[in-house]
Structure formats: C-alpha cells, structure tokens
C-alpha cells in the first residue's frame, strides 16, 4: 500500500479502508438515483399507464445476452481483483481488459437495440414507457462508459505495480452497475403483462 497522501487517508477507525468505505457510500447514493427512477417506473406501470404494454416490443434475446455479458464481466473483474491480491499483475491487467471488452460488447448491443427501436418509430417521446426505457438504460450506459474509462486508466498503474487497491474499488462499482442491470432486465424486457 502506498504511504503517500495525508495521514488521514490511511487511518481506519471503522476497520474498512478509506477508499472502500467511500465507494460504499457512493454506491448507497447511487441506489437512490436508480432506485428513484425504478420506483417511478413501477408506479406508472402498476397504474396501467397507456404505453407500458410496449414492453413486449423489447428484444428479450438482446436483453438476456447483455445480462450474460455483464455477468461475465463481473466475473472477470473479480478475477482481476483475485489476481492482484496474489500479486499477479499481468493476469490482473488481462482480466481488466477482458472486462473492458465486455463493456464494449454491451454498448454495441445497446446501440443495435436503440437504432432498431428508433427506426421502427419507438422514439423517446412516443410514450412514457419509451421515455423511461431510454432514460434509464441510457443513464445505465453512461455508468458503463464511466466505469470503462476508469478501468482503462487503472490497468496501466496496476501493470506498473502500484495502486492495487483500486482494482477492488472499480470492481465494486462495476458489480453495482451489473446489479442495476439485473433489475432493469426484468423490468424492461421480461415483465410485459
């Protein structure tokens, strides 16, 4: 562990390292952002708002494939963390870039889905369902992109042999992005009744 920075950063009255504690708080606040959107969506859906039957038009195959991609990327990022704990930097570097690649695949599928939907007339302003669909999956995609950028930056540090703890931190964030998708998938793709 590096000894740079203020003493405060290396203190740990709770027993949780400062970086990880901060990420937990970050994720807790993210729960409210996504949770707020999901709560609004569910309210409208249970209310039988017109337009929500369009959930049947989303492609279950694409959604399921994306879920699979994100689950797998969660596995690779946790394997990167395990590798870095063993001190295996090269392996960690490889696993981080596998995760990055999974992010690319996920985004490509999203682009394919978006373009298909827009071409068939389901734009964001068509009705509330599509508004929610694009807002929530779009916000989620932004989180995916953000995570990928950070991951790319971290990977080179790790290969040079410092800031190992960050692999765990970005991993936690990435798992959270995965968790959000785990809930978005049934909401938008499966539950069309």
């Amino acid at each position: 562990m590096s000894t740079r920075g203020p003493v405060a950063t290396h203190r740990s009255s709770t027993g949780i390292p400062a970086g990880r504690l901060a990420v937990w708080w970050l994720l807790a606040s993210e729960i409210f952002i996504f949770g707020g959107l999901i709560a609004c969506f569910v309210l409208f859906k249970l209310n039988g708002t017109p337009g929500f039957e369009d959930a049947s038009e989303t492609s279950v195959v694409a959604g399921a494939f994306n879920t699979f991609v994100l689950l797998t990327s969660s596995l690779t990022v946790v394997l990167a963390h395990a590798a870095v704990e063993r001190g295996d930097r090269e392996k960690a570097f490889t696993y981080i870039w596998y995760t990055f690649a999974a992010g690319i695949v996920f985004l490509m599928v999203k682009v394919y889905e978006y373009s298909g939907k827009i071409l068939s007339g389901h734009t964001i302003t068509e009705n509330l369902f599509w508004s929610f669909y694009y807002t929530m999956t779009g916000l989620h995609a932004l989180h995916v992109i953000g995570g990928m950028v950070v991951m790319a930056l971290i990977s080179f540090d790790v290969r040079k042999g410092y800031n190992y703890q960050r692999v765990e931190l970005i991993g936690l964030y990435w798992h959270f992005v995965d968790l959000v998708w785990i809930f978005l998938f049934p909401l938008f793709y499966i539950a069309n009744f």
């Binding site: 970086g19 800031n163 960050r166 931190l169």
Partner: peptide
C-alpha cells in the same frame, strides 16, 4: 464519481 474517487491517488 467513482472515477474521481479512484483518481485521487494518481499524482
């Protein structure tokens, strides 16, 4: 946000 949290140690 986590970018920022993670970027803290870079310099």
């Amino acid at each position: 946000m986590s970018e920022a949290a993670a970027a803290i140690h870079t310099e």
